[in-house]
């Protein structure tokens, strides 16, 4: 970088312009790539008609919170896999039958297991899952409180006989011994 200081002004300008050009090109390529990646996701969603906007919204939230069993981390509403399509169709059919969200989730869990729930339920089996973070936070809080209390007590404790003797010696020093003033 020390070289730029000796370079002529026109060369610096040229370099800056080239840099800007590269940045613009990179941004263009990136936006193109992002457009390409977004395409299959859009293609996965069929158009569905529901009798009310409330049902349509429930469909959207259910398909967003049910996990595709074939994929590692995609909701059935985002996935192109055949099983996700079947599940979306079933969710729509069950909604039209007037089933509740809970019933639809139960229906899917009975077939595909707890894996399909992005939001695991609070049950005996999931107690560890839900309880561990809370327990750890609580434990951490207790630990911090204990440390703070101990520190406070340590700073406020009385001086030992040794320390008091040293302090007395310092305080009762004859004035002429303190050479520096």
């Amino acid at each position: 970088m020390a070289m730029t200081a000796t370079a002529s002004p026109s060369a610096t300008l040229l370099a800056a312009r080239r840099c800007l050009g590269f940045t613009l090109l990179a941004a263009l390529l990136l936006s193109l790539l992002m457009g390409l990646c977004a395409e299959p996701v859009r293609a996965a969603v069929e158009v569905r008609d529901f009798d009310s906007p409330v049902t349509a919204e429930r469909y959207r939230s259910l398909t967003g919170a049910l996990r595709c069993p074939k994929c590692q981390n995609q909701a059935i509403g985002d996935s192109n896999s055949p099983v996700a399509k079947d599940m979306r169709e079933r969710v729509a059919a069950l909604l039209r039958e007037g089933r509740s969200d809970r019933e639809i989730q139960d229906f899917m869990v009975a077939r595909f297991g707890d894996y399909v729930l992005y939001n695991p339920r609070l049950e005996d089996r999931t107690l560890l899952l839900w309880g561990l973070p809370a327990t750890l936070v609580l434990l951490g809080g207790v630990l911090v409180a204990l440390i703070v209390r101990r520190r406070r007590r340590a700073s406020a404790r009385e001086l030992s006989a040794d320390e008091r003797a040293r302090l007395d010696a310092l305080l009762n020093r004859p004035p002429d011994a303190s050479g520096d003033h």
Binding site: P69, K70, S81, P82, V83, D86, R90, R111, F112, G113
Partner: peptide, 12 residues
Amino acid sequence: EGELGFELGVYG
């Protein structure tokens, strides 16, 4: 139609 497959929770 994959009806039985769905009931069995087949995903592939």
